[in-house]
Design a protein around this nucleic acid. Structure first.
Lengths: 237, 237
DNA sequence: CGCGCGGTTGATCAACCTCAACCCGCGTGG
DNA sequence: CCACGCGGGTTGAGGTTGATCAACCGCGCG
């Protein structure tokens, strides 16, 4: 789902001189940074002078194509490392979906890690590997699945990723448009399908950003491409 | 385009005991392996006991979804490293498109590299990063572009990747179906669009698997989302 | 010769997009 | 206080793209 889990440990706060990467919000001393919801952590094309480890909150990573279309290539929360896909410039933009705090790791320190701390380097390599796998999985989903399948799988993934409240209820902090850009759909389509899922009783939206999965079984079969056997449409229009 | 270029150097033939990973074609002594076109290098779910570096030929990497649909997540040729996205099992299948030769690097050696050779570890990390970036780019393409854009960009990318014959002619060893599975289309759609490109004079198929780009400018503008100004349709039906 | 594989082409159809109206909650300013 | 606008979401009508189903072609091969 391109929603890479898998925390990485070992980047202790020590070391990592602030280094103040060009502008805005110089970190205190422990190279940590907070950004408000809908603010950018960095833009496409910005110099990549450090990697970030998400400590709390959700961010979205996206690309803008030449014609202005956008694709969200991943959401990330606690434990994810940001910036590994880039070389000297960030090839993704990164925007906070919720309030977010991240730890900065100057690139100099990263190469230093590779040179000296093999254990950590190996761990880092596995993290990128996981991200690559996640990206490929999402590619497969976007390339082959129907709107219904995409949405069903998306809801299930987000649900499973929110370790809090695990009885099928969860916060889904992204907007409809974000989901659409992630799934390769239009926001109207997402909205329609969400409504449909709810009408049929598969899910229940307690609020716009809080969802409860009622019929996980059906969503799962739907996500796998099975037909949902056209369960009853509650209060059919 | 998920067609990761960027050769990696430094994996010299020495070391790397054959180790003969379960069955078929035990490599000579220098941990090198040859596979015929349309044979598999490995399948989804196979144990990942080594990484491979492509020495010559083209392979395709794909995933199969639960409902049997397939998505090609990347093509790879000379210099690419295969298997980095996986953990203990290969999460992609890998099939030779043309005859292929690869060099095997036992996983033990990979971790050893991380522990001892920081220089190489760093290089490895960058390779995965590139692959991740490529996967994200492809995700963006599949998620947002029209069939026409996808195909135009695809042709251009393949062309640029074939360092041989660089005057717009190139071998395109994959089948129509492969392109379709890569671009998130159906093979009929690919076929139709290819025919259309040719009718309009943008490209010329010398043979089924050899293409010459005639109007690179138009393909480029098309790929960026611009309309091709509806150039003349040669021999309109 | 017949068959199978890969590709092309045509007709039809449905999924999804597009455009547009509308709703609701909220913050702002008169 | 209310009017207003705005952002985000929902819903509807209609159009287009690309999928589906099916026929057909050319070629290589047993």
């Amino acid at each position: 789902m391109c929603i890479a889990g898998g925390a990485i440990t070992g980047f202790s706060p020590e070391a990592a001189q602030p280094k103040s990467p060009a502008g805005e919000r110089t970190p205190q001393r422990a190279a940590s940074r907070h950004v408000a919801a809908h603010d950018h952590l960095y833009y496409e094309g910005d110099a990549r002078d450090c990697l970030y480890v998400v400590e709390s909150g959700w961010v979205k990573l996206y690309r803008t194509l030449i014609d202005g279309q956008r694709q969200i290539v991943g959401f990330a929360n606690k434990g994810s490392i940001l910036g590994l896909e880039s070389d000297v410039e960030h090839s993704n933009g990164c925007e906070a979906v919720t309030p977010v705090s991240v730890r900065c790791i100057p690139m100099a320190r990263v190469t230093e890690i590779c040179l000296n701390d093999g254990k950590l380097a190996n761990q880092l390599l596995r993290q990128v590997g996981r991200q690559l796998g996640a990206a490929q999985a999402q590619l497969a989903a976007v390339g082959t699945q129907s709107a219904e399948q995409k949405l069903a799988n998306f809801l299930l993934t987000i649900c499973d990723l929110c370790d809090d409240a695990n009885d099928g209820q969860f916060d889904m902090p992204m907007r409809r448009g974000d989901m659409a850009e992630f799934l390769g759909l239009r926001l109207e389509t997402v909205s329609r399908k969400m409504s449909e899922f709810q009408r049929r009783g598969w899910i229940r939206m307690e609020s716009l950003y809080h969802c409860r999965i009622v019929r996980r079984d059906i969503l799962e079969s739907l996500g796998e491409g099975g037909t949902a056997d056209d369960g009853p449409i509650l209060r059919a229009s």
